[in-house]
Design a binder for these strands. Sequence first.
DNA 1: TGTCAAATAAGAGTGACTCCCAAAAAAGAG
DNA 2: CTCTTTTTTGGGAGTCACTCTTATTTGACA
Lengths: 212, 212
Amino acid sequence: MSGMCPRTPTSASPQGSLRERKKVQTRQAIRKAAYRLFAEQGYDATPVDRIAAEADVSPSTVFRYFPTKEDIVLTDEYDDEMAQVLRDRPLDEPPLVSVRQIMHQVLGRMLADPEMRADMVRREELVRDVPAIRARAHEAFSATGRLLGGIIADRTGRAADDLEVRVFTAAVFGALHETTMYWVEKDRSEDLVALLDRALGLLRRGLDLPKE
Amino acid sequence: MSGMCPRTPTSASPQGSLRERKKVQTRQAIRKAAYRLFAEQGYDATPVDRIAAEADVSPSTVFRYFPTKEDIVLTDEYDDEMAQVLRDRPLDEPPLVSVRQIMHQVLGRMLADPEMRADMVRREELVRDVPAIRARAHEAFSATGRLLGGIIADRTGRAADDLEVRVFTAAVFGALHETTMYWVEKDRSEDLVALLDRALGLLRRGLDLPKE
DNA sequence: TGTCAAATAAGAGTGACTCCCAAAAAAGAG
DNA sequence: CTCTTTTTTGGGAGTCACTCTTATTTGACA
């Protein structure tokens, strides 16, 4: 969720030079091959060499596109969009409400598209099942948090590394990640957006946890 | 921060059989050797074989004691204590207040002992500097969160995997971890307990982030 | 078409981690 | 104390992620 990423997530829209198009193509070929093999034989049982063979590239090419094997699974694609949504929110809106809006918009769009939704489900299942990926997903989430934290700092007139801003994003993204895990662990039987609203609601109520 | 751990953190108190004592001794020897080498030449530049040599054990022994190289740095030792403090809190106390008490008690004791404090500082610096360790530290924090979450679920009459409980611990431990990172990044010039109070205060106020 | 820059392939090397088996050391029984 | 059993250790071979380097290919551009 941090660093470089192409503009268009899915479908090869004819943009840029031949070289650029080929790069996107190769990237997707590796991803697709990896996901297929992971589904067939599991993540740990699939060497990178195998993925390279399946995608018809050399192993070194795989590492040129993805710094680590885990990164083949993870994605950045929504960071810019989330940042843009945040910047477009009214300045007087409480940050927690802005985050809720981000989730509604970005996740809503994502879950609406069947292909995107399927990709996300496969990704989150790997996050759930593979410790190495889960660890990295956490880092990726933190990176997204830092990105949005910078914007929130701007909007609230605070320093970029203000403690309160950092705690805000850490708490919010920790909660969101946990909620997503809950969702996949429950086999996605509940509505993710509704679950996220419950989570953000609890945060807004000062984490007051009444007895049941 | 999850799983097996000896009762007494520091100093070899004569307890258990010869075998048990030797195990504790070996474990500490490996840890001490590792910390020394990491300080001298850095984490990445120190192969496990080198640590094994320094600790006078075979490389395979190192891996028998610590599943991964990162785990040599991380620790579990305070989980049981935190759990016990939590269980001893009055049942009608809001969970967030209980967490605050845990932090005050356990961290207070830890920071008071110079040796413990020094160990913690070295550990957190490695967490700050080494991505692989940071990722694992996050997982460890989550494990502690799950442990305390189970107890909180009990105390609030909720299911063990109740969404609200999980969100609570994820948010709280995310915030605490971020605060600790802030503390080491600022070269520990501020009082950690005071910082944690600020963080928990923000959580209690529903993450309301006023403009400055 | 020819030249330049970037992407790729191929190979060697490092280091974390696993599996397996034989040797050593401790625990327990007689 | 001695023999047997169990646990712990050490050593070696093997796998795999990842790095670095170099030669080759391929698209960009004049």
